[in-house]
């Protein structure tokens, strides 16, 4: 629909953005390249290609320090949390945005409170609560925590659902559909772009979170990848060649997820489906 030919302004934009993106390419590219350097090479050659190509860092990280286990933990925890988060928060947002009732406005602000204070200050009472339900050192506890931390995604969903034309809902009612069916079978499919946006952003946040796993997944066998990397980093001068390898490993799944999801964002919406 937009014209294919690109004017001068377009080309300038392309060039500027290319230069901007070059920063990320250089830094991330350097990280990946450096993960194949030996420690001594790295010391004098922080930027640039390795003198000799070594996979020793990966052997150490993946096999000797068994980071593959942390990797599996991370994947499981993140995927399960995202699904639970998107389901619960979109449902709550739907209830908030599509129905008229007393106290709705205040409830919206109430659900935003979660973004306004550092979780660290609440960690002690949270710990007590988690223990009361025997949820410490369990993935299910973590999934519930990440789901409860829904302010961001709920906010995005609420604003989105508000914009949807009410005609959709009304016509479905006339067709005799139940409230939950309308949400699941009519609203969710239209919400694809926003669902995938929330998924992408939440994926990164949960994947990169080390604080909650540090507190609630004390057992070594339950550690996530980010937690493992964080512990390398806490003593990073001793391990900085491993840091590069571990960080590269951590990056791969997120890039894959982003590529899949962002294509969904772009192609997710059939033209005209929410016309008034």
């Amino acid at each position: 629909m937009y014209k294919k030919k690109q004017g001068l302004g377009g080309w300038i934009a392309t060039i500027l953005l290319t230069l901007y993106c070059l920063i990320a390419v250089i830094l991330i590219g350097n990280m990946i390249i450096s993960s194949f350097k030996t420690k001594h090479d790295l010391l004098f050659n922080t930027f640039g290609f390795p003198k000799e190509f070594s996979i020793e860092n990966y052997q150490q990280v993946l096999i000797k320090d068994s980071l593959y286990r942390n990797f599996i933990n991370s994947i499981f925890l993140t995927v399960a949390s995202i699904l639970s988060l998107v389901f619960v928060s979109s449902m709550t947002a739907y209830g908030l945005a599509r129905y008229r009732f007393k106290g709705r406005q205040s409830l919206e602000v109430y659900f935003l409170l979660g973004l306004m204070f550092p979780i660290q200050i609440a960690i002690l009472p949270l710990f007590v609560i988690m223990r009361t339900f025997s949820l410490t050192n369990t993935f299910i506890g973590m999934i519930m925590l990440y789901t409860a931390n829904m302010s961001f995604s709920l906010f995005i969903f609420t604003q989105f659902f508000k914009e949807l034309p009410s005609a959709l809902h009304e016509s479905a009612i006339i067709d005799g559909a139940g409230e939950f069916t309308i949400y699941l079978q009519i609203m969710m499919p239209i919400s694809k772009p926003v669902i995938f946006t929330v998924m992408t952003v939440s994926f990164v946040q949960i994947w990169n979170d080390f604080y909650l796993p540090l507190v609630f997944l004390a057992k070594r066998s339950l550690h996530t990848l980010t937690l493992a990397i964080y512990q390398y980093l806490a003593n990073f001068l001793a391990y900085w060649n491993y840091v590069f390898a571990a960080a590269t490993l951590a990056l791969i799944p997120v890039i894959i997820v982003f590529l899949i999801f962002s294509d969904q964002i772009i192609s997710g919406l059939a033209a005209g489906s929410i016309k008034e």
Partner: peptide, 23 residues
């Protein structure tokens, strides 16, 4: 014996939390 290595910037808060919670 199972050891757990924490990180210096969080150690004290984790320890206090665990003690307060009796765990």
């Amino acid at each position: 014996v199972e050891y757990e290595i924490k990180t210096p910037d969080n150690y004290l808060s984790l320890l206090t939390t665990a003690i307060q919670a009796g765990e």
